[in-house]
Design a protein around this nucleic acid. Sequence first.
DNA 1: CCATATATCTGACTAAAGTCAGATATCATG
DNA 2: CATGATATCTGACTTTAGTCAGATATATGG
Lengths: 290, 290
Amino acid sequence: MLDPVSRVRRFNRAVTSAVGALDTSFLGRGRPLGAARVLNAIGHGRSDVAEIRDYLGLDSGLMSRLLRSLEDEGLVETEAHQDDARRRVATLTRAGKREFAAYEALSNAQAEGLLTQHSQRDALLAAMDLIASALTRERVALDEMDPRCEEARYCLGEYYAELGRRFSQGFDVSLSRDPDAKDMRRPRGSFIVAMSDTLPIGCVGLKGTDHGYAEIKRLWVAPAARGLRLGRRLMDVAESAARELGITLLRLDTNSALAEAGQLYRSTGWREIPRFNDDPYPDLFFEKRL
Amino acid sequence: MLDPVSRVRRFNRAVTSAVGALDTSFLGRGRPLGAARVLNAIGHGRSDVAEIRDYLGLDSGLMSRLLRSLEDEGLVETEAHQDDARRRVATLTRAGKREFAAYEALSNAQAEGLLTQHSQRDALLAAMDLIASALTRERVALDEMDPRCEEARYCLGEYYAELGRRFSQGFDVSLSRDPDAKDMRRPRGSFIVAMSDTLPIGCVGLKGTDHGYAEIKRLWVAPAARGLRLGRRLMDVAESAARELGITLLRLDTNSALAEAGQLYRSTGWREIPRFNDDPYPDLFFEKRL
DNA sequence: CCATATATCTGACTAAAGTCAGATATCATG
DNA sequence: CATGATATCTGACTTTAGTCAGATATATGG
């Protein structure tokens, strides 16, 4: 009853019935689930028929028929792909958009219902983030992004907030040597964001120069995604990017209050070196030759 | 992308595919899901056919046919109910028990797989407990139990552990006035455990006397179940039990470090009174007339 | 242009799930 | 013991999902 496996299975049961309830509410719109899923996939921006088929794991015959039924309802239109007339592209009609909005409203209502009945929203959301990250760990995408895009700024905001909590003296970005966004974009450097589905859960910056030297900055993993070895994966990608850019020497600074980070660096070939800058926050310095 | 509703929906998507994977592994045993569900319901102790039908939400015709197919496979036997020959009672044959064990093994393997790929098991389990409690809040059962049963002892153990964490001087049960189990059982008192599915998530003791006076002891709500107003519900049940037992005066002691508890008492008609015992831990004392 | 590969569609099929209207046996009650 | 209620079963049916073998149209590389 109280062993870990039982607890996981209790969670499974609880969640299965909640998920089933959402499916049932979808059926309330008078359309089989298969067709509703295709409609929603299109609504969420998947227009290529092959892509939808792949995403939903459908047989081509079944997919074709489901699309036809949505067309008969006047919710979807298909046309040949611009570059390849064998492929088809599906779009929602005006009525289709309304219907999609109705499904969205159902999903949102279910999500809100879950949240409003709980007086500790933040704890509940944190728990959901943690579990979603654990369940989708295989599908985390490490994408190079502009350090000024929304996802990157979200990560940096969370990173600064965490430093504020973990440094006894707090953390003020303006006192730190904030890297110029230009230095963390090709061709000088890089900025990598780890995305789990639609949620950014980690980042790392490679702040380059034009003479084969770069620094690793802003390595952050969301609390919900810790324990998944994401820090290591981010560092691997950053190092690959550095190699691609012809960088031969990498350095980074960190603080001994961030114990996990120090451990990660030490176990992945970084060597501790003396202080190489006068930033007030770091007290540990590392270097790695590529 | 980062608003609460999106985070809940990301969680839903992650969990839906995990749940689907378990269903698929169940299909691997060569039996449609409907029949597998019935077999598992029986294995988990639901023998009454009507009860299974209700639990799985099946039509009586469908249920009948699924049972028949399990009988044909030699996994299940049915017989008339002892007290009411219209009802049928299903039991697993020896082969049925083996087959059920195989399904259990699949479920356990899935649960273990989830745990072992995560290096922060405890955090993951705590998150699962929290979410399972939130999702099943409507189905929490507040049952009167013997204070020495497994569930009660689990609650008390967690309660003591939490006091140890929250009191700056720690907590040692032997220094506290540990109520005799006899005083928390009918006819003198009562002990109530909140069960969410198979997991105890809260408790409260009513330590009675034989002269219309009782004390509330050991009010505890699992961290995972906080925010669901369970403390209030436990207190309501304890008060009802007290009324049934003819108790007219209730008292309790608590510690100001347990702020939520103090707030709960104040908002539900309890009145602060001077110290009425010499237990070293409490520093706040309340009374309520019924 | 030809051969081959690819994307979708169509027709013919099966399996699973679910619905519904009785039939049958048993129970509770006056 | 007659009556109506209840639990299950049976037969006849529908819907949904999924499979599979071609048919059709288009793309690609020689």
